[in-house]
Design a protein around this nucleic acid. Structure first.
Length: 526
RNA sequence: GGGCCGGUAGCUCAGGUGGUAGAGCAUUUGACUUUUAAUCAAAGGGUCGCGGGUUCGAGUCCCGCCCGGCUCACCA
């Protein structure tokens, strides 16, 4: 090897002892030393006749299949020999003289392999000696049990499949640095098995909803993510630009108005699972892009959706965890049933500051204005609810009877037009669902939009825009319909016990990292 | 955006009141043909997030900035 890495003790005026690498401005860091070492090892592996970045490898079993099929077999039961070909990433190596062990990791499962000099061909043994933790290899041989009883592959031939140039996180603690875990999720997935489980559960939640909705006759659609007019929620949008059309477009804050157009068009049961984008703060419960399930069912109302929500959540929990129970932040929860409160009942129930108000007082604009600084009675009621009741609503709860002022797309309650036929699903202090009987009267919808427009002119950036085509669609007649949105990320948090939304989003939004410094090193090696 | 906490070797972490940086894993060399946090012996590896300041001297104290976490505000 031509590279000897010496230190340049120029502080003492002494030239680097042996040889200074011939390129400049490369830190002689350990990281670089390891990179160089591994990079040159690739050539040695090639010299043995292996392809440095491997090729197709036809394994006979995944590691999970081996554990599943042979995990409980005794040494005797592994006779006659069970020949297998497996592959995976090297997690640990224990070399001892003329033999050694390694653990392979694949698909979240690991399996030990045993390589002894007199059991493999020369090439395989030479390869074994050159392997680094993190390399990806294939191994063929037969299953056996070691002296300590661990199911292992007695290797007869090793194959090289891919090289790692960078060091893997430590085997014992894994990767703990939260920033690195989010930025380099691939490393997080390799080093921390529970992360993999979380994202598999997330996938299961989504497939469970799909199956359940499709069993009920819902059809999945995709509506625009880039919209000339944004709507369907109260939120600030991201803006982008289309060059050829020369128009600004908004990344959608909700698919709602498009989905209801489809209901007008006769898609009576329709749903979409996709991203929404809201240009707002980031927190443990908020990521600027997040995934929402929205579904619309014609000829039902919000009460119908209460029942449906209960069924959906209960079954999703069972599909994911095998039970309706789950634990979040050290507390037990159960999706077996959802409590139901009107907003006013919840305020009365959890009122702690002296005499409880009456339900009538909670509808009295004067009384409300004395207890909240909000402009309208409806906003004041919501304000009180959020302060008085919401913090106590931990168990899964449906809160209904929302003021119409805060529900511009929901239908008024026929008995009391001050309220909208709307509910939210609250769990562990998080809003995970929002549903209502859809407003399908175009004249009333026009008035509501105009109120929103006035709010917008007063500086409320989150107020709705006018959407005349949506009004036009309603003018063709939308059947009585109820719609609901369920936050997939938050539901995933609950069902996986993740306290931060970033733990259920593979690549949460972070500030850019800046120069990594790897390119320079790779160039210098060429 | 405010408050609090953090950034030290590739990874996980130590570094009272300022005195020029340590451990374990990983890496390199040697020993070892059933180990498993393998073991034993030795070695190498650090712009202590970045930039200023105070000081004879700063990982440590002060100021500014960058990145992240928690939290409050806003939202789902």
């Amino acid at each position: 090897m031509l590279f000897v890495i010496g230190r340049n003790n120029d502080r003492e005026g002494v030239q680097g002892s042996i040889i200074i690498l011939s390129f400049k401005e490369i830190r002689l860091s350990l990281e670089y030393e390891l990179l160089t070492q591994r990079y040159h090892r690739i050539r040695e592996i090639e010299a043995l006749g292996f392809k440095s970045y491997g090729q197709r490898f036809d394994f006979t079993h995944t590691l999970a299949q081996i554990v599943e099929q042979y995990g409980d077999k005794t040494a005797e039961q592994l006779e006659p020999r069970v020949e297998v070909k497996v592959c995976g990433r090297i997690q640990t190596i224990r070399r001892m003289g003329k033999a050694g062990f390694a653990h392979l990791l694949q698909g979240g499962e690991k399996l030990q392999i045993y390589v002894r000099k007199d059991a493999v061909d020369e090439k395989s043994y030479a390869l074994y000696q050159l392997l680094d933790i993190g390399d990806i290899v294939g191994a063929s041989g037969y299953l056996f049990r070691t002296r300590t009883g661990e199911l292992s592959v007695h290797v007869e031939q090793l194959t090289f499949l891919a090289k790692t140039l960078l060091s893997m996180p430590e085997k014992w603690h894994g990767l703990e640095d939260v920033e690195t875990r989010y930025r380099q999720r691939y490393l997080d997935l390799i080093a921390n098995p529970e992360v993999r489980k979380t994202f598999y559960k997330r996938a299961k939640i989504i497939s469970s909803f799909r199956r359940q909705l499709e069993d009920r006759g819902f059809v999945e659609v995709e509506t625009p993510m880039m919209q000339p007019i944004f709507g369907g929620a109260a939120a600030k949008p991201f803006v982008t630009h289309h060059n050829t059309l020369d128009i600004d477009l908004y990344l959608r804050i909700a698919p709602e108005l498009y989905l209801k157009r489809l209901v007008v068009g006769g898609l009576d049961r329709v749903y979409e699972i996709n991203r929404n984008f809201r240009n707002e703060g980031i927190s443990t419960k908020h990521n600027p892009e997040f995934t929402m399930l929205e579904f619309y069912q014609a000829y039902t109302d919000y009460r119908g959706l209460m029942d449906l929500s209960e069924e959906l959540l209960r079954q999703t929990a069972i599909d994911v965890n095998g039970t309706t129970e789950f634990e979040f932040d050290g507390r037990k929860y159960d999706f077996a049933r959802l409590r139901r409160f009107t907003m006013r009942e919840a305020i009365v129930e959890f009122w702690r500051a002296g005499d409880k108000p009456t339900l009538d007082q909670l509808m009295d604009p004067e009384w409300l204005s004395r207890h909240s600084s909000k402009a309208t009675a409806g906003e004041a009621l919501v304000d009180l609810f959020e302060r008085v009741a919401e913090p106590h609503l931990l168990d899964p709860t449906i809160v209904y009877e929302f003021p119409v002022e805060v529900s511009p797309l929901a239908k008024n309650n026929p008995d009391d037009p001050r309220f909208a036929d709307r509910f939210e699903i609250l769990v562990a202090g998080m809003e995970i669902g929002n549903a209502y009987t859809e407003l399908n009267d175009p004249q009333e919808q026009r008035r509501r939009f105009e109120i929103q427009l006035a709010m917008r002119e007063r500086g409320n950036e989150e107020a709705h825009q006018m959407d005349e085509d949506y009004i036009r669609a309603l003018c063709y007649g939308m059947p009585p319909t109820a719609g609901e949105g369920i936050g997939i990320d938050r539901l995933t948090m609950l069902l996986t016990g993740s306290k931060s939304i970033r733990d259920v989003i593979l690549f949460p939004l972070l500030r850019p990292e800046g120069e990594i410094g790897l390119l320079k090193q790779l160039r210098s090696l060429e």
